[in-house]
Simulated scan of single mutants.
Amino acid sequence: MAAKVTDFTQLRKRLKAARVKGAPSHALGQARLMMDAWIDAAESHGMPVSEALRRIRDGAAARQIAEEVAHTQLSSNSGIAANAACRAGCAFCCILKGEDGGTIGADEARRLHKALLPLIGQPDGRQWHENACPALDPETRMCRAYDARPMICRSYMSVDVAACERIAEGQPADGAGVLGAQMIHLALLALSRAAMAGIAMVPTYSMAKLAQMAVDGASLDEALTMARHGPRGLVDELARQAEAMKRVP
C-alpha cells in the first residue's frame, strides 16, 4: 500500500529522512536546506499539502528553487558568469552530445513540449547541424523555446567561444561548463525522489529525445514515455556533472 502524507509535518519528516547516493555532500546539503525553506513558504502561503506533493513529484519545486539559484549566480560580479563570452546566435552549446542531451524533470519536459508544439513541420536546428537541439531556428541559431528552456540550458556558460566549438566537435576543451545551479537542480530532483519514495516516482527525461519527439509531432504522453530515463539515469547524471564541475573556471 502506498504511503500517505496528509500534512506538512509529515512531509518535513520525509525530507529529513531522505537519503541520496551520488550527489556531492555540499550540493545535497544546500538542496536540503532550500527544499525545507520551499516547504515552509508553501505552508505559510496556504498551499494544500497535496499541491506541494504534486510540485515536488513533478520537479516543479526543484525547477523553481534552481532558477532562483541560477539568477543569483548569473548576477554575480565574479566567476564564469561575469566573464561569459555567450552571445545570441552562438549556439555551439546547443549541439547536444550523446543520446541524452541533458537531464530534465517532468515539469521542464511538459513546459518544453508545449513550447515546441508550434514548430511542428517547420525547419529546426537539425537543418543547421544534425545533432543540434530542434528548438533552434536553423537560420538565426536562436532558441525558439527560450522562456521554457530547462535548467541545463539556463546554467551552461562559457568564457571561450572557441572552446564551445571544439566541445561540439567532440574535442575536450576548458572554458565552458555549467553553473552550480545545475548541480543543485539535480540534487533537488534526487532528494525529491528519495522523499517521495513509496508515494510516487520522481522521473527524469532526456531533453534531446523530448525535444525531437515534440517537433516531430508526438503527443505529450508519447514524448514522455519515449524520453523517460531508467532508474539510474539521474544517478549517472549526478556523477557526470560532479566530474564536469571540477573543470568549470
Rank of each mutant, 00 (worst) to 15 (best):
A2T: 04
K4N: 11
T6V: 10
F8S: 04
F8R: 08
L11Q: 12
R12L: 15
R14S: 10
A18Y: 03
R19S: 11
K21W: 13
K21Y: 11
G22F: 07
H26M: 10
L28T: 11
G29E: 11
Q30N: 10
Q30W: 04
R32Y: 01
R32F: 01
M34P: 00
M34A: 14
M35W: 04
A37Y: 03
A37K: 12
W38Y: 09
D40N: 07
A42K: 08
S44D: 10
S44V: 04
H45C: 03
G46T: 05
V49C: 03
S50M: 15
E51L: 15
E51T: 15
R55L: 14
R55Q: 15
I56E: 09
D58I: 14
A62G: 02
A62P: 00
A66L: 09
E67V: 08
A70C: 03
H71W: 10
Q73G: 00
S75W: 03
N77P: 01
S78I: 15
A81T: 02
A81Y: 00
N83D: 15
A85V: 12
A88F: 07
A91I: 11
C94I: 03
L96M: 14
D100K: 13
G105I: 11
D107F: 11
E108L: 05
R110C: 09
R110K: 14
L112Q: 02
L112R: 00
P118H: 10
L119A: 06
I120E: 15
G121W: 05
Q122K: 10
G125K: 05
W128N: 05
E130T: 03
E130A: 06
A132H: 06
A132S: 09
P134A: 10
A135Y: 04
A135S: 13
D137V: 15
T140L: 11
R141S: 01
M142N: 03
D147Y: 04
M151Q: 12
R154H: 04
M157A: 03
S158Q: 01
V159Q: 08
V159E: 10
D160F: 07
D160E: 11
A163T: 12
E165V: 12
E165A: 14
E165K: 15
I167K: 05
A173L: 06
A173N: 06
A173C: 07
G175F: 02
A176R: 01
L179R: 06
A181L: 08
A181C: 07
M183E: 14
I184P: 00
H185V: 13
L188A: 02
L188V: 02
L189I: 07
S192T: 03
A195Y: 00
M196C: 09
A197W: 01
A197I: 01
A200L: 09
A200W: 12
P203D: 13
T204L: 05
T204K: 09
S206G: 01
M207T: 00
M213W: 00
G217K: 08
A218C: 02
A218L: 03
S219T: 15
D221H: 00
D221Q: 08
D221L: 04
E222S: 01
E222N: 01
A227N: 03
R228H: 07
H229F: 15
P231S: 07
P231F: 08
P231R: 12
V235N: 13
E237W: 10
A239Q: 14
A239H: 08
A239D: 15
Q241V: 05
A242N: 05
A244W: 02
M245D: 12
V248G: 02
V248W: 06
P249H: 06
